[in-house]
């Protein structure tokens, strides 16, 4: 550790490296969800009727509300990153704080939905549709939690004065990740709640 510097000599290289790193990571994530979406496709083709019947048991209103919540949170992230690009650290913290708040709203709603399903006797092992539902929303929920951690870390960095218009890589990278989490939900919502 002595004499070892973590930062690269050239901040431009560091930014490029971080960006490529995050995009590569997102490629991994796509494949992670990709496997589950493949399972979804296979079983929906095999049992279209079951998907049609079972999906009606989900609460569309709560699902739609959550979609709005997540899209708004993504907007907050965009505004936050824009703020720090103009050097406004406090504004960044406020927007990211709003994102984290919206994310926790999302998780609370999810909690309510899951509780309702359990009350109706729908568990991950009930049938393939609910297996998919719980696995997909569960995995997505873990990503939301992780994203909240990352955004909080960016807020801490900003509070310590580490971010500025010259160095805002962590804010931009966490934003990229958050958009991905949002995007996954945008696929999940119609696939689970709006089966045609």
């Amino acid at each position: 550790m002595s004499g070892h510097t973590d930062e690269h000599a050239d901040p431009a290289v560091a930014f490029e490296a971080a960006k490529l790193g995050v995009w590569t990571f997102l490629a991994t994530e796509v494949l992670l969800f990709g496997a589950l979406f493949t399972a979804y496709t296979v079983f929906r083709m095999k049992y279209p009727e079951m998907f049609r019947v079972e999906h009606a048991k989900l609460d569309r209103v709560l699902g739609a509300a959550n979609t709005v919540v997540l899209i708004t949170s993504s907007l907050m992230v965009v505004l936050g990153v824009d703020a720090i690009k103009r050097g406004k650290a406090r504004l960044l913290e406020a927007y990211f704080g709003a994102t984290i708040f919206l994310a926790s709203v999302f998780l609370c709603v999810k909690y309510i939905e899951w509780t309702k399903e359990f009350h109706h006797g729908n568990f991950p092992g009930t049938n393939l549709f609910f297996s998919l539902y719980f696995m997909l929303t569960g995995l997505h929920g873990i990503h939301v939690l992780f994203g909240m951690g990352v955004l909080s870390y960016v807020i801490v960095l900003s509070r310590r004065g580490r971010l500025s218009e010259a160095w805002y890589t962590p804010a931009e990278m966490s934003g990229l990740y958050w958009h991905f989490v949002d995007l996954v939900w945008i696929y999940l919502f119609p696939l689970l709640y709006l089966v045609g």
């Binding site: 991950p124 092992g125 393939l128």
Partner: peptide, 14 residues
Amino acid sequence: VFGVGFFDPSKGGD
């Protein structure tokens, strides 16, 4: 753990 049945033929899995 949860009885998810993607690979379980008795639950329609494969």
